[in-house]
């Protein structure tokens, strides 16, 4: 099979189409619930991002088919073994201008919606609730700074047992994506997340909301999201922060407004209790 100058038409065609199929599978795996693709978008920004990605994929696929269609046609037809004699042309200003201009236009078409989304993403003004997320080696600290729940503050740490990591115990369903204290927010409200860090860089990411923001020690950064639907959404720290970088997940629990109010009340009571026992202890 590996014949000399292995170039039989069939192998080339086979390989060409196989890889093309593989590549296009990317554009076709649009099944919204696929675990091999974006998690289902749960905010306006995430939805826009998702749509732009699909658009970009289709555009790339189209360019890919045109370019490699031409190239593989040439590979099949213009080969010495079929007795094809080489032409001798070596430039053409007209086609060069065309194939400079067309990609430029395509890029503008892709940049346009992206620009709008960027502007929207950066608009963190007038939030309903502001939460500060502080990265520590290796956990997150949350402080509710403004809005309903103001004053709540807690740490959120990986809750997967070490035994599961070491493999001495079966891994649970949310292996590495579960924490002791979830961040809780109400549905449909604009949540501004302020990030900072205590030691090294971290990054706060929840894919379903389309937010990712580095947490920089000594600096304040912010981002925002508005969740569409109640549910539990999981993400991870995405800036290398040392040994346990893989072990500081983020879990956001989105609740209906009344349930959220209830949660705030419970949380406040619990922390008051802690303060009381501390006072008694003194």
């Amino acid at each position: 099979m590996w014949g000399e100058y292995m170039s039989s038409k069939s192998v080339m065609t086979l390989l060409g189409s196989a890889t093309l199929a593989l590549y296009s599978s990317m554009a076709f795996s649009l099944d919204e619930t696929s675990k091999y693709f974006h998690p289902q978008p749960q905010s306006v920004i995430a939805q826009e991002t998702y749509d732009q990605h699909i658009l970009a994929l289709w555009i790339c696929l189209a360019i890919f088919i045109v370019v490699f269609g031409v190239m593989f046609y040439s590979i099949l037809k213009h080969r010495k073994s079929t007795g094809y004699k080489a032409a001798n042309f070596h430039h053409s200003t007209v086609v060069e201008i065309i194939w400079t201009a067309i990609p430029l236009l395509i890029l503008i078409a892709m940049a346009f919606p992206a620009t709008k989304t960027v502007v929207a993403m950066k608009d963190t003004s007038e939030p309903d609730i502001t939460i500060k997320a502080t990265g520590y080696q290796w956990m997150w600290g949350y402080d509710y700074l403004q809005g309903e729940g103001e004053g709540i503050s807690f740490f959120s740490k990986l809750s997967t047992p070490v035994a599961q990591v070491k493999g001495t115990e079966a891994k649970g369903e949310n292996y590495l994506l579960e924490v002791d204290n979830n961040v809780v927010v109400p549905v449909g409200k604009k949540i501004r997340v302020i990030t900072t860090a205590n030691d090294v860089l971290h990054a706060w990411w929840v894919p379903a909301f389309g937010v990712k923001q580095d947490a920089i020690p000594g600096f304040i950064r912010d981002t925002w999201f508005t969740a569409n639907k109640p549910g539990v959404y999981r993400g991870q720290c995405v800036e290398l922060c040392g040994k346990d970088h893989g072990y500081m997940p983020i879990v956001v629990e989105v609740m209906e407004a009344d349930k959220y109010t209830q949660w705030v009340a419970d949380k406040k009571k619990a922390s008051a209790a802690v303060v009381n026992t501390a006072a008694v202890g003194n």
């Binding site: 500060k132 302020i194 900072t196 000594g218 600096f219 304040i220």
Partner: peptide, 12 residues
């Protein structure tokens, strides 16, 4: 200037 802006009053 950034470290001194209003936003960063939270930290400094």
């Amino acid at each position: 200037p950034e470290l001194a802006d209003a936003e960063h009053d939270l930290l400094w």
